Simulated scan of single mutants.
Amino acid sequence: MKFISIVVPVYNEEENIEFFYQEVCKHMEPLPYKFELLFVDDGSSDATPLLLEKISQQDSRVRGLIMARNYGHQLALTCGLDHADGDGVITMDGDMQHPPEMLPVLLAKWEEGFEVVQTIRISTEGVSWFKSVTSGLFYKLINAMSKVHIQEGGSDFRLLDKAVVQSFRRYKERARFIRGMIGAIGYRQALVEFVAPKRFAGTSKFSLRKMMHFALDGITAYSKLPLRFAFFMGLLFALISFAVTMHVVYIKLFTLEAVPGWATISASILFLGGLQLLGLGIIGEYVGRIFEEVKQRPLYLLRVELKQQQKE
C-alpha cells in the first residue's frame, strides 16, 4: 500500500488545527493509502504547539515539527519536505483555504502518472481587490522577466512524487521561491483548478510586507533582468549627459550666450544621482543574496519533534 505524506506549515493557527485535522482524516481514510499528517510549526506564539502535541499523542499518523523560531512559510515548507517519507507528498496550508476535499483529486492525477500535480487558484472567496490585482501583476511581471514559467494562480497546494521531492532536496539556496523551484525542476505536471474558500477561523498572517519580500525573492531568484535594466538605463543617461555636455561646450565656445539654466543643471544632477542610487540598490539586492548564500548557515533549526510515544 502506498504511503502519502501531507505537509502542513502552520503559524498561530490554534483556531484551525483540530478542524483541519478532522477534515483531512475524513477525506483520506476512505482512500486506499496509508498516510501521515506532518505539521510544521513556524515558531507560533499561541497554543498551536500544545494542540499539535495533543493530537500527535492521540494519533500515530500525526507528527509535529516545532521550529526554533519563525523562519517564514517557504522554509517551513522546506522543512516538511525534508522530513516527509511518503511515496507521494502533498503540501497544503492549514487554514482550510486549501480544501481537503481536493485530496482525492490530486491523488487520482498522481495515479495517472503525473509526478507533479499543481493546483491553480481561480479565485479566493472574500479576498480584497488589491491582493487580486497585485497577485496577477506579479505573475505577469515575473514571467516576462524569467526564463522559468510560473503558472499564474499557482499555490503551494500541490502533490509531488517522491522522485520530485528527492530532486527538490538538492536545491540549497536560502532565499526560496518554491513555486519557481518546482517549475524549474520539471517532470510531468498536471494542473487542477479550484476556488479557495474563506479561512475557517482567524486572519491571514501574510502581511503586505511579507508579500513584498516574497515577490522580491521570486524576481531576484529567477531573473537577472533588473541588473540589465540598471545597466541600460545607466548607459542611456550617460549618452544623454554627454550630448548635453557637448551642447553646453558649443554654446560657451561659439556663441556669446552662457547657459543660465542653474535650475535645469540642479534637476539633472539630482535625477542622475537618484538613477545611480536606484542602480546601486538593485545591485545591492543581489549582493545581499550572495552574502546570505556564502555564509552557508542551516536553512532552519528544529526545537522538538512531536510524535506518539511508543509504549514499552
Rank of each mutant, 00 (worst) to 15 (best):
S60N: 09
E112C: 10
M96R: 11
I55Q: 12
Q74V: 01
S44Y: 10
R69A: 11
L77C: 14
F35S: 00
D46I: 08
G72W: 05
L75Q: 14
L50H: 06
V133D: 10
E112G: 07
D85N: 14
H73G: 04
L107M: 12
R63K: 15
E36R: 09
I122Y: 09
Q58W: 03
I66D: 08
D95Q: 02
L65T: 00
E125I: 11
I90A: 03
R61S: 05
G113M: 06
S128I: 00
D41I: 01
I90Q: 03
Q74T: 08
E112Y: 12
V133N: 08
I122Q: 15
S56Y: 09
A84I: 02
A76V: 01
K109V: 00
L107R: 07
D95E: 11
L37G: 06
A84Y: 03
L38N: 13
A68S: 14
T124Y: 07
G113S: 07
V40D: 09
L38S: 04
P99C: 12
A47Y: 04
G113W: 03
Q97L: 01
M67R: 03
D46V: 11
P100H: 09
R121L: 06
F114W: 13
P99N: 13
D42Q: 10
E115W: 12
G64R: 07
A84P: 10
I55Y: 02
G126V: 08
D41A: 02
Y33R: 00
T78R: 15
V116T: 02
V117T: 04
G86Y: 08
V133M: 15
H98D: 15
D41R: 02
I66M: 06
L50W: 05
D82E: 13
V105C: 09
D41K: 06
D85L: 12
N70P: 00
Q74C: 05
E101K: 10
G72E: 02
S128Y: 08
A108Q: 13
P104A: 11
V133H: 10
I55K: 08
Q74E: 14
S60R: 14
A84C: 11
E36N: 09
E36S: 12
G86Q: 08
E112D: 15
E101P: 01
D59Q: 03
V133Y: 14
I90N: 09
S45G: 01
V89N: 06
G113K: 04
F39K: 11
W110Y: 14
G86W: 05
C79Y: 03
R69W: 02
K131I: 15
S128A: 03
A47F: 05
A76C: 08
